[in-house]
Design a protein around this nucleic acid. Structure first.
Lengths: 255, 255
DNA sequence: TGCAAGTCAATTGTCGACATTCCACAATCG
DNA sequence: CGATTGTGGAATGTCGACAATTGACTTGCA
């Protein structure tokens, strides 16, 4: 990855245009490099040089070091003392499996939530707010589509939070940054740069919400699975093109 | 933890007395602070100030930052951006459970290894070497007992490596530094500072080796469980005194 | 007297320079 | 001719200083 053109980091923008400053500089760098790895812009085993990244992102080597440590946590790089950082390539199959696993767990969570009856009320209220937030972000600029993603992610978390099964909630949300879910969420931003995909996802979630309000367990499970598997297909298709790689068709089931 | 006296780090010693330089400075600092947390020298929620640790260990804040990130990986601290690092207290119960879980898994591994017959030959050979190494280290200085521990740890790993069950081996050795096993190994050095405990452990492993050579499955399982549970009792007893804390007796079973 | 805004000290974040270590290449020796 | 050791360059490790932010304290006002 010798791409020399990078968008400026938040703090380099004029104060007026500055985005929500919740991410530290190392986190922003880690996210960008992680996205580049998932997108296949780095090859497996490729070396990540501190100075190179530092000049590319316009910071000193300190924040870059922290970012590399974060990438190691995510499982996207390995750091050898005195020998540098190296990219750990993630196959499309692993990413597809992450989506598949989440589809299964989220389906169970949605079913349980629909079954909970009155206890689902707070979940519905929170989801309405989160969906409204996402709807307001459908037409954001191309480089701010991650804000829409965050809103969708929050919508999904409402389901997990209130499904009544602590172990499922934990499996789906705990340490999201250091698990396979991180892979999934990191693969998605590219997908949400397409407006049609943002609309499609939003529509799915509105129908999921309706199914939960109607306490239709089967429909809630079916829809949330469909949303995740649709996203999987779109993400994998995009990545397959980018990376010139194919994925085992058996992983791309839709039932 | 306001302890002002610290033993010098490796690189501060004259070249002749320098220990095996396999650990980086941040790792050494992380290990010391981790031990201090497990030993109860830090209270839960206590703040870890970078500058304070830096002067205590005679380095600059850079390596300390890396050490704090490592402690976060181990689950012994949390780092809040711009707000510092805080100790995550680990109860004696959690530590005891780590020993209990390992006793169960290691017991299965030993049984399977004994059952493997000829395939166990390389394991026996490696264990003999590791035990000989440990035996040579029984009389090391107080502050080098971690070398003995490393030898014992390697002896145990021989069993896991050759037990023939990949999932057990992975559970017992994978990412040891970032899992509950890390807690266990970190709690132990204090225990191996006692010569009688070093001798006791060595004796256990010699008998375990003999049982494996004799292909006595039950004896192998019984002995490895006994070794780990004996260590558990000794470690917990030491920590309970140090920390003035008690532990649920139900966790201290011996069957 | 209670609350709010402003101020200040303390601590983390960032930077550039220097020190140390590793690796590749090359020259030498067996 | 192959293996080994010495050397040079490049990258990581470490350091001290400066900048930015936080949280607590103080001060002013209602």
């Amino acid at each position: 990855m010798l791409q020399d053109a990078h968008a400026p980091l938040d703090q380099d923008l004029p104060a007026g245009r500055r985005r929500t400053r919740t991410l530290t500089i190392p986190e922003q760098i880690a996210n960008r490099v992680a996205a580049a790895i998932v997108n296949g812009q780095y090859r497996d085993g490729e070396r990540l040089r501190e100075q190179e990244l530092a000049v590319a992102y316009g910071v000193s080597r300190g924040p870059v070091r922290e970012a590399l440590r974060a990438l190691e946590r995510y499982g996207l790089a390995i750091l050898l003392p005195r020998r540098g950082a190296y990219v750990v390539g993630i196959s499309l199959g692993v990413i597809a499996e992450a989506f598949n696993a989440r589809a299964a767990l989220a389906g169970i969570a949605a079913r349980q939530l629909a079954r909970r009856g009155d206890a689902a009320a707070p979940a519905v209220a929170e989801m309405q707010a989160a969906i409204a937030h996402a709807a307001a972000l459908v037409d954001v600029a191309l480089d701010e589509s991650h804000l829409f993603q965050a809103a969708i992610r929050e919508t999904a978390r409402c389901v997990y939070r209130h499904c009544g099964a602590g172990h499922i909630e934990r499996a789906l949300t705990d340490q999201v940054d250091r698990s396979i879910w991180g892979l999934m969420w990191r693969a998605q931003p590219l997908d949400f740069q397409r407006r049609d995909r943002r609309l499609e996802s939003l529509d799915f979630w509105r129908r999921i919400l309706a199914a939960l309000e109607a306490r239709d367990e089967s429909q809630a499970e079916r829809l949330i699975r469909a949303e995740i598997l649709t996203t999987r297909d779109s993400v994998i298709a995009t990545l397959a093109t980018l990376r010139g790689e194919t994925v085992d068709p058996a992983l791309m089931f839709r039932d």
